[in-house]
Simulated assay, not measured.
Amino acid sequence: MKKRYIAFLVSAVAFVGSCAAAASTDTAQRTHTVHPGESIQKAVDTAKAGDTVLVLPGTYHESVKVTTPGLTLRGTGNTTILQPAAKSADDCGKRGNGICVSGTKTKRLTGVTVSDLKVTGFSYAGVMALATDGLTVQRVTAEKNTVWGLAEERSQHSLYRQNTVRNSGDAGIFLANTLTVEQGSVDTNHTQIAQNTLTGNRIGITIRRLRNLTVTSNDITGNCMGVSIVGDENKPKAGAVTVRGNQVMKNNKYCAKTKRLPFLQGSGILLSATDTNDVTGNVVTGNSGTSPLSGGIVLFKSFVGATSDNNRIRNNSLRDNSPADLVNQEAAQRGNAFEHNTCRASQPEGLC
């Protein structure tokens, strides 16, 4: 009787163990591998929350839309290439985007990662994020996309890290509150733009009508303008951005005027209609031009009459910027402070 009891107990434990293993297998995160000639979108649609879609080296002529939370879309580096399809059936591709990461008007899409691939030649943006929370875009090369390399709106807690963005028609990295409605700035809850390389774009980084984010340790060179932090007359004002430890050098490409802006050339870091930004510890050199926005670090009174207030420009190293290393077009009483910068020339004099 004792032997039968022990045998029963062993069988029961084995049964419970096999059930637990089956449950673990069913709920485990999976990797879906995409080979050249296969559909990335099909793998993304099959994947569940927390899964990884791994795209092997090759050129894929398609756009990809991600709507699954926690999904990782990962390539194998610059050998995994997305280019436009001859004809797109999905709304992401029809709008000219390479990769779309999309939440809804009522619910943000959380925890998506896009990494280690190249998006090139799209007529709008290489990667476009809408209504996301905790998005990570890293080690992505975005090249020759007609409007933006990497872009987002209505998102928070994003991380853009170690990406290379070249030759975008507008901004290499473009972050905004919303593109279609004029409204006050929104809080990104500590979005980070860090360790990216931006070159040959109209503007390296544009931050429009946003608050509470950091731009740090980026290499920004050869654009028409390096960094643009811009607001307007709406409230709350854009700002509370930390711009720290960036190399902003020789952004002297010429870009013709648009409906919104005059021609651009030789602009390092621009603040317009913003407040309480901290621009510190940057190396800003060789940005030279004759645009109204030219100069090393420029506080520009916006075209709609909104002011830049209570910004701190401190501990930066500036040289060989023209018309000056530091340019302040605001009235002295606006509370903007220029402190401990190393530079040779300023407008007005006395800011160095």
Rank of each mutant, 00 (worst) to 15 (best):
V298F: 12
T285M: 13
G295F: 01
I313W: 02
E330W: 08
G296D: 05
R334N: 12
T285G: 03
D275S: 14
N311V: 09
D320C: 06
G286A: 03
N310H: 15
R334V: 03
S322C: 09
G286F: 01
T342S: 14
G286Y: 05
S294K: 04
A324E: 01
T290S: 13
D278G: 00
P292M: 15
R319C: 07
N277P: 07
S308Q: 06
T342D: 03
G289N: 07
V327E: 03
A324T: 06
F300H: 15
D320W: 09
P292T: 01
G296L: 02
G296Y: 04
P292G: 02
T276H: 15
P323V: 11
S308R: 11
H340D: 11
Q329W: 10
L293E: 01
G281S: 05
I269A: 08
N321K: 09
F303I: 07
N341Q: 07
V279E: 03
G335N: 05
R312K: 11
E339R: 12
S302D: 14
E339T: 08
G295R: 00
T307A: 00
R314T: 10
V279C: 10
F338I: 02
N315Y: 11
R319A: 14
A324I: 07
A324S: 06
N311W: 09
G296S: 00
V327M: 10
V283Q: 13
N321A: 04
G296A: 05
D320Y: 06
A332M: 08
S308H: 07
T307N: 07
N336C: 10
N315K: 12
L299C: 08
N311C: 01
F338L: 01
N328M: 02
S317V: 12
I269M: 14
S272A: 12
Q329M: 14
T342K: 00
T290H: 10
L299I: 12
V283E: 09
L318I: 08
E339S: 07
G305F: 13
N287F: 01
G335K: 06
D275N: 13
R312H: 11
D275M: 10
T274Q: 12
G286T: 04
N336T: 08
G295Y: 01
T342P: 03
S272D: 00
H340L: 05
N282C: 04
S322P: 02
I269E: 07
I297W: 02
V284D: 10
Q329S: 05
N328S: 13
R334F: 13
A332T: 11
L318E: 00
V284I: 13
I269C: 00
H340V: 02
G305W: 07
F338D: 00
V298I: 11
N336Q: 09
R334E: 10
A337W: 04
V283M: 13
T274S: 15
E330Q: 15
F300E: 01
G335W: 05
I313K: 03
A331D: 12
A306L: 10
L318Q: 00
Q329R: 15
S288D: 09
N282A: 04
L271I: 01
E330D: 06
P292F: 12
L293K: 06
S294T: 01
G286D: 13
N287G: 03
N311S: 10
N315H: 09
S317F: 13
